[in-house]
Write a protein that binds this DNA or RNA. Structure first.
Lengths: 333, 333
DNA sequence: CGGCGGAATGGGAGCGCTCCCAGAGCATTA
DNA sequence: TAATGCTCTGGGAGCGCTCCCATTCCGCCG
């Protein structure tokens, strides 16, 4: 293994000079810098991460707690992960993958051992049992998702309440008076998944304010449950004309089933959903939707971590405002 | 930060004794071990990963190169990832997430810097451009997937050729004489994705041997392309009665479309697929399938890495034999 | 001509751990 | 009694880096 010492000798400078060339933490003459860089290439030197971490007390690694549980939509999760990894790399950080299943102690473990300088936690729940424990983590922690108790930790999320309001409002604006929300599987609501609950609250609130008839239907993936769900929604007498869907996994099935029932979108039924843009675009019928800005949320989470790594910060909540894109799947009534 | 020195003082022993209690690399009397462990808990000691890595020349971290590209099925990828993380933790290893997009130098980078002790690379292609570069990585490398040039690196994969043969053979055994393979998107074949090509070869080989009419149809996700694909497959005169599907993403859509066309499975059309068991079970019609044993493949990859970390090993290829589960979606002709 | 400020570099302690090299204490054997 | 073999423990060098504390060498001012 080539060490910094050998590079120094090869370049005819001291170890400290090589170190400073690498870190840029003090000015080095052009001439010296060039010589050092040549030696680094010539010898094939790569700094040893362990030694660097030990001496500098920085690991240049971020812990990422990822949920791998049922009900969450894996492609969406992966968009977040990809965005976080890319953003982290932009800051010269790597990402250590921690799975929620391995227990809530994971964030603590990697942090206490100085394996990571900070932790990002995905898929936080309203009343997440991990929160108290995360507070004791002696490193910056940023949550993707917003717990009820969000005064104590920094978090980033889409403003799902506003999203719920917007979608109900959008349908109300178009003259619909009876609408339905088809949501995530019951389990998601039961465990108090924050975003689901907030969207639901926004939806109900706006529906109430606008005097809409509004029903809510949690829905499992799978054809049968989608069909059953539609049976409820479209029950005679209900006169549902507008549909809000908050469940990426069933969108395709739902639209096919509507087609099978010879229901036109948006002729017979207006449909609006919340999902990543590329999903909304590639459905049998492109859907008017509010985007899940995974890319952006991931990048912001990383930025927040970096800010907290650079200096002490108070907890901060960032809610991204929803962006509605009309793709013609909703129509005036 | 509590160090090993403080633990040693607290327990009235030397640093080395604490270290050996922790690593178990030499026998320590029960009494001493107990005292040390008590001190560790009392002081809240956590070994510093950087220092440990520096001194022991082991990072206890595994690099995992994950593809985040289109066409691959994210839920399946995540099954692999989850399995690898869990298996790694069983061996007291953590997982550093590397994305293929970040460039093929990633494996090299983390390895040269001693950030990771070994690397697992997912979604390897037949003629993968990363192979030559991976050969120069100075650490164990295990591939999930099998490149053409598989003499030089260790790899684990399902025996897709046999799987292709089995599926064609299964239909032949049932008396079908005209069958079709609905595959992954064209892009997957075009970039020479190893598993797709091998399954295809097995399928064609067996079909030839058994004198079957066999057609092949790459298929994009999305309703329209599935419908178009079915139009081809079911074109009059073709008399296709058996369908092999190798594309997790379209299974749901495909079955719904068959239902829409009033084609019964398996009455009118026998369908067999290759996908994770939980997917096959939860479709509108449960499908007879060959499982993608993500759990097992991930675990084996980790085992192979650990074996190579323990001692030098020659490259080794492990192909898991496919396991066919009959769920009644295929019938005799 | 001495003193001074600024720019460029060198020296090396110390980060927290592992593991080699002993040494101490005791029982067993010659 | 001395030698030998065990078992258990201690001491501390050294892993490769960072960053504090100098030192050197200028040009410039008074």
């Amino acid at each position: 293994m080539i060490t910094i010492k050998e590079v120094a000798r090869h370049a005819g400078v001291s170890m400290s000079t090589v170190s400073y060339v690498l870190s840029g933490k003090r000015t080095i003459s052009e001439e010296t810098k060039r010589r050092v860089e040549q030696s680094i290439v010539a010898l094939g030197y790569h700094p040893n991460a362990g030694a660097r971490a030990l001496a500098s007390n920085r690991s240049q690694v971020l812990g990422l707690v990822v949920p791998l549980r049922s009900g969450v939509n894996m492609p969406v999760i992966m968009q977040f992960v990809a965005s976080i990894v890319a953003s982290a790399r932009d800051h010269d950080y790597d990402v250590l993958l921690l799975t929620k299943e391995a227990g809530p102690g994971e964030a603590h473990r990697v942090t206490a051992r100085s394996m990571t300088d900070a932790v990002i936690v995905m898929d936080v729940e309203s009343d997440d049992p991990r929160i108290p424990e995360l507070r004791t983590v002696d490193a910056p922690v940023v949550l993707l998702g917003m717990p009820d108790d969000h005064e104590v930790l920094s978090c980033v999320d889409l403003d799902f309440a506003t999203a719920g309001r917007q979608m109900a409002g959008h349908l109300a604006d178009l003259g619909h008076s009876s609408i339905a929300l088809i949501g995530s599987p019951p389990a998601v609501y039961e465990r108090g998944t924050s975003y689901a609950a907030r969207l639901l609250a926004g939806f109900r609130g706006e529906a109430g304010k606008r005097n809409l008839q509004a029903s809510v239907h949690p829905c499992e993936p799978g054809y049968d449950s989608v069909a059953a769900c539609l049976d409820e929604v479209l029950a005679p007498g209900r006169d549902t004309t507008g549909l809000v869907v908050h469940n990426e996994a069933i969108l395709g099935t739902l639209l096919l089933e509507l087609r099978r029932r010879s229901l036109d979108v948006p002729g017979d039924l207006s449909v609006i959903t919340l999902c990543p843009d590329d999903v909304a675009e590639n459905l049998p019928v492109p859907l008017t939707s509010i985007a899940v800005p995974a890319q952006e949320l991931g990048a912001i989470a990383v930025e927040m971590v970096m800010a907290r790594l650079a200096q002490e910060h108070a907890p901060e909540v960032r809610l991204l405002q929803p962006q509605l894109t009309d793709r013609g799947s909703t129509a005036a009534r």
